[in-house]
Design a protein around this nucleic acid. Structure first.
Lengths: 214, 214
DNA sequence: ATATTTAATGAACGATGTTCATTAAAAGGA
DNA sequence: TCCTTTTAATGAACATCGTTCATTAAATAT
């Protein structure tokens, strides 16, 4: 009993099955997926390589054939969160051409992401902010590019006379800081019930609108 | 050489010196002070009981005669930060009777604390937020009381027709979230130079002023 | 059938937080 | 002064952690 079933993975053979490179990618992805699950379930501090290995049915040492170390693995988890975050903001931005509507939807998407994927948000913006700046191997888009969307939308709104003239950097910093502050409180302070959070979000939006409109 | 001098502490005798209860308090304080130093120098993740014991010249086990475990020790560190934080805000609040000046000074004190004691701020409001809610043994003032100052000043300003009518909870939440957002970005994102941070702080203050004034 | 390549492993190392029986210095009593 | 009791401090041990590396055996190549 409990003898390894010949399923999609984890067949009985544990040694030296040769992978065609494609299979290696698959396992690497499976590790990442499982790591995300473990991370989301148990949180950052309870995340351990040995637990992850146990979940996968592999020896801890095997993980190091696919990821250099724990840090790089977590970095990949963060990176996934970041592309998702960027996509969400970009989609909100391109969903309308009205300058204010655009800013509003971006703000909404920001908060929504933070509240929905709060564990990710914490890892990305509170616990491992350092990951934000490591320009890693596969280069791709830098992590911080997610906030370019914010800045671009501010400039866009200024070009359309929807946002008052002034340093667009400060304006997008204000947006960033306000949204981050709201999300941070909402997901970390238990007294922030959905109702209280919603009120705060709405008032903060109004505040930003008042402060930035031309 | 390096033979234990008969100084204020750490005499040669290592065993069973009996303490009069007062001395025990002193050592407990020394441990806390040294823990704060270690924590500030090395950060949260590099903080270890064994390093701390080495700094003090004691065995790791000794620490457990004075603090239940690492968590309680760090909690005491956080608690120190919190009383300091509360004091700073309270002092700013009582330094003037002008409603807006008061709110402004509280905001200034908040940001100043965050930037000055950034390591504390991170531990208190980002990494170990859970400490905020543990009503510990010596009861004293709950950690969250620090934010009562914010709320009180909003109400005070409303009573003096300086802040417009409306739910004072939302208003103080807005203050809290905005200030936290600014501080969080400033101390975590290296691109936030002092200049950029100062601009952000000023604009955020103006924004809050516009949004809350009657 | 044999040799080569390589995915996976077990065992080990150092560091961590924590517990507990043991030690020896101080205090109290004769 | 000697003996007993109290107790501050310890060393050794345990479990857990991240990580490395020589070893194993399955898949492939010859």
């Amino acid at each position: 009993m409990t003898q390894p079933t010949n399923g999609d993975d984890k067949t009985g053979r544990k040694f030296g099955r040769r992978r065609k490179g494609e299979e290696k990618e698959q396992l690497k992805e499976l590790i990442l997926k499982t790591a995300s699950e473990l991370f989301i379930e148990q949180g950052y501090s309870a995340f351990s390589m040995r637990k992850l290995a146990a979940m996968l049915g592999y020896s801890p040492a095997t993980l190091y054939l696919y990821y250099k170390d724990k840090d790089h693995l977590l970095f990949s988890v963060v990176d996934d969160g970041f592309t998702r975050f960027r996509q969400e903001l970009a989609q909100a931005s391109s969903s309308t051409s009205d300058p204010w509507e655009r800013l509003d939807r971006i703000g909404e998407a920001y908060v929504q992401f933070g509240l929905t994927y709060s564990t990710y948000y914490q890892l990305m913006f509170m616990w491992r902010v350092d990951y934000l700046f490591e320009a890693k191997q596969g280069e791709e888009v830098p992590r911080l590019a997610a906030f370019q969307v914010l800045f671009d939308s501010v400039k866009y709104a200024q070009d359309h006379q929807a946002v008052k003239p002034g340093d667009p950097y400060v304006y997008s910093d204000m947006l960033w800081a306000s949204l981050h502050g709201v999300v941070a409180l909402a997901i970390q302070i238990p007294m922030f019930t959905p109702e209280r959070t919603a009120k705060l979000v709405n008032h903060t939006k109004d505040m930003l609108y008042m402060a930035l409109r031309s």
